[in-house]
Design a protein around this nucleic acid. Structure first.
Lengths: 346, 346
DNA sequence: CTGAAAGCGCTAACAG
DNA sequence: CTGTTAGCGCTTTCAG
């Protein structure tokens, strides 16, 4: 049972097998299989012979070999922050759906918001060339991206306006204005004057831009950002929970709290409730981005809504425009729109 | 700006470039880069020259070319049901973490529990050979898998005991006993006698095995499964919500409801509450699998817990054992353990 | 209309 | 210890 070909891993027929069975050369087979190639005419008879042979053998072209020859991999790579964060699901969804339809495969990578992982991703796509990249980096510098772009001309589309490279398409730009609007609404419509902020750790994006929106709104209404008003945490449910612990122990805590994402906001609500407080009576809590958990939690979460599936479709559209060569030239910027979704947590 | 090499997509150096710069042949470069290859000794001096050249050029081997030659892709493919279902996150997590560590890339595919998608996945990995496959199929038949195994000798590890192929490693087997235990508990400890069941659509696994557990428990206590006790829905939150609608309109509905997964159970709770009912006072509702949402919802969900990260680690371990050739031969079966997690929804 | 031949970048015999 | 050579399976000139 052991003396097969040197590679017992597969008994897939090759294009040679098809050619042999059809009694033609393998290049003819290749031609009918990629009939697009500049309208070279092929006799209906050999064409049929080949198609029959393909059928009979169940031939499937080997993508690895094709990639080596064509220098196109029919793969795109996606780097997200955290597969557990529902924020990314509609985006990955859209990317996969469109890619499937176009017979592209999708490589997915989690960065966990860790710099080394983001760098590793870049190296991966250097070694394994893909036709396009979608990423939501939190730590990469423009310099890192530039290093990459120097060496690989693969088109990149990024989510998050912190990415700022002349060749990279970017979707984002909502953080500052949306946060500003949310804080303003808490002040004007809900009468809050002591508003806290749960930020990311180590000034990791998108914390800072959201923080600027908070600062601007507070400043505009001459409201102080007292020491203790700003807490930090991981970009997760648990991070929000822990940050909230730092609020509940304060003598005179804020009456409203903005969390830099909805997972943190939900963690904060859970922590408040665990400490015997009521939301929104004792604390109004708001998040950023409308994920399913926002309506599972009680009270349901007031948050900033973006059309996530649309953002996903935009990302993949921008990418395929470049992959297909319809677009070249400098990176484009798409500002997504957003709206305030008022629910029960305020 | 256009007259570069025919392939302007990359200016990555090749092994030839390294060889030229180091003044040696490309095979010598290959040798030092894969020093494992049967202890061929290499003079320290050329070795250093090569390493320097690699450094200077920032050479990275092209994985596509390497794959074509070695017939190994350093990729594994994962097919899950639905990226939005948190059930899969710890599993994908474990797979990615271990793969990263071993420099394997991970191709992820959503089947959406649709038969055509599952078949398409199989075809994808036929065209793009990967070194191993992890999948959680809901619709594939043994015959489909067998067809695949005939053609490709890539090792497969499956999640879910409905997969039954002599060559495939399987982790699963909890559905019937765990459901039985849960129903029994509802009867014995909670005094329910009218218990409903939210099943999957079209007898899609794992619905049927869970249903058998339900039947067995009900039968053992001589409790009737009245018409209307069994409702069906998509394997999602929305599916559970809609199924619950069919309970609340009944004249004499069940007092407890088991949903085939926790997403459905949460949908059911939400629907009950939306209709003005209280959980657990009016309906006790339980799910299957402990996902984060189970403790976000109020009342928190009584459910079957499995150690999902452990299952993920087991899946990828079984797979790598085969990829590494440590294990060959017939498919193994691993029964995962589970426990009943009692929370507030009962 | 079809075949022969080159070569994508790499590894692995096989000779020195 | 190192270089030469032969492909992996495919696409794409270039000749007929």
């Amino acid at each position: 049972m052991a003396n097969q070909k040197s590679r017992p891993n597969s008994n897939m027929p090759t294009i040679q097998d098809v050619a042999r069975l059809a009694g033609v050369s393998h290049s003819t087979v290749s031609r009918v299989l990629n009939q697009n190639s500049t309208t070279i005419p092929i006799s209906e008879i050999t064409r049929q012979k080949i198609l029959d042979a393909v059928q009979e053998l169940g031939y499937q072209p080997n993508m690895i070999a094709r990639s080596l020859r064509t220098q196109r991999s029919q793969m795109i790579a996606v780097m997200i922050g955290d597969i557990s964060n529902a924020f990314y699901h509609p985006i990955v969804r859209a990317v996969q759906d469109v890619s499937d339809k176009r017979n592209y495969d999708v490589l997915i990578s989690n960065s966990d918001h860790i710099y080394e992982h983001e760098l590793r991703f870049l190296n991966t796509v250097l070694r394994r060339p893909v036709d396009g990249i979608i990423m939501a980096p939190h730590c990469l510098t423009t310099h890192d991206i530039d290093q990459f772009v120097q060496r690989s001309h693969v088109p990149i589309v990024a989510l998050g306006a912190q990415v700022n490279h002349p060749d990279v398409d970017v979707i984002g730009g909502t953080s500052e204005p949306a946060t500003y609007q949310m804080i303003k609404w808490l002040i004007e419509e809900k009468g809050h004057r002591r508003i806290g902020f749960i930020n990311t750790l180590h000034d990791m994006p998108p914390g800072p831009s959201r923080f600027r929106g908070y600062q601007r709104a507070m400043g505009e209404f001459n409201l102080a950002i007292e020491p203790g008003f700003v807490q930090q945490g991981e970009f997760t449910l648990e991070g929000g929970r822990q940050a909230m612990q730092n609020f509940v122990v304060q003598e005179n805590p804020p009456t409203a709290i903005f969390a830099a994402n909805s997972l943190m906001a939900i963690g904060a609500i859970l922590a408040a409730q665990a400490n015997g407080y009521k939301v929104p009576e004792d604390f109004s809590i708001v998040g950023y981005d409308d994920i399913p958990e926002a309506t599972i939690i009680s009270p349901s979460l007031t948050t900033i809504g973006r059309d996530l599936p649309k953002i996903g479709r935009q990302l993949i559209s921008l990418l395929f425009e470049r992959i297909d060569g319809q677009v070249s030239g400098p990176g484009r910027f798409v500002a997504s729109d957003w709206n305030l979704i008022v629910r029960e947590s305020t």
